[in-house]
């Protein structure tokens, strides 16, 4: 299990090596690998996933995926004392003034998705979350490094104070999430098309062609 290392994922293998050394383990003793699938920065996701897949390939051990937003939600739920919010909305900074976010109802033994992961403009997300909260008659707590982006203030939402350790994805929660809900197939959760594809689809729509 690895906590976040600096450098957009480029130091992940180095961090894994130090972690194994600290735990007194050899790399050959690993018998299962869990990797965060995102959403997140494309390059960082790919480095993490490529590293996990290659370790699994070389060691002949299974590689299991977990949603980064779900792991974040578990961490927020743990830290949620004082926030009686049955609906948790993890939100990470997606750059371009957007957030990657989803919403989950905390249920015994896990999470139930009430808003699917997507890249959002913060005001649109605030509106959608307020709608979910109203429909379920529940308070909604937004947390994560995307929660500080402007545009998320909305009367129906509360925002977890910045600086809380729960604002960061913890690798242990990726493992917990796999234990709760089973592994996801290992592929990056980009939630966005490549820019070139967006542009191509836009051009096709503009000219009335079908993609």
């Amino acid at each position: 299990m690895l906590e976040r290392a600096d450098g957009g994922g480029r130091r992940v293998l180095e961090a894994a090596h130090h972690l194994l050394a600290a735990a007194g383990l050899e790399v050959g003793e690993i018998d299962r690998i869990v990797v965060g699938l995102g959403p997140g920065g494309f390059t960082g996701l790919r480095i993490g996933i490529a590293t996990a897949l290659a370790l699994g390939q070389a060691l002949s051990v299974p590689v299991e995926g977990a949603s980064t937003l779900e792991a974040l939600a578990l961490g927020i739920a743990d830290a949620g004392a004082g926030h009686p919010a049955p609906i948790l909305a993890p939100a990470t900074d997606a750059r371009r003034r957007e957030v990657f976010a989803a919403a989950y109802r905390v249920v015994p033994g896990g999470l139930e998705e009430v808003l699917a992961p997507a890249a959002w403009h913060p005001p649109d997300l605030a509106g959608a979350l307020a709608g979910v909260g109203a429909a379920q008659g529940a308070a909604v707590l937004v947390a994560g490094d995307g929660a500080r982006l402007p545009g998320l203030d909305h009367p129906g939402l509360s925002v977890l104070a910045p600086g809380s350790p729960a604002q960061r994805v913890r690798a242990v929660n990726l493992v917990r999430r796999v234990a709760q809900a089973g592994p996801r197939p290992v592929a990056p959760a980009y939630l966005r098309l490549p820019d070139a594809e967006e542009n191509r689809l836009r051009r096709l729509t503009a000219t009335g062609a079908t993609p």
Binding site: R10, V12, L13, H17, V27, G28, F42, T43, R46, I47, A50, T51, A52, L53, A54, L55, Q57, A58, L59
Partner: peptide, 20 residues
Amino acid sequence: LIGALLVGVATAKALAYAAR
């Protein structure tokens, strides 16, 4: 292309590391 290179480098490093 840096994003493309990084997939190969991450893969090669992890394969070499796991196989010592």
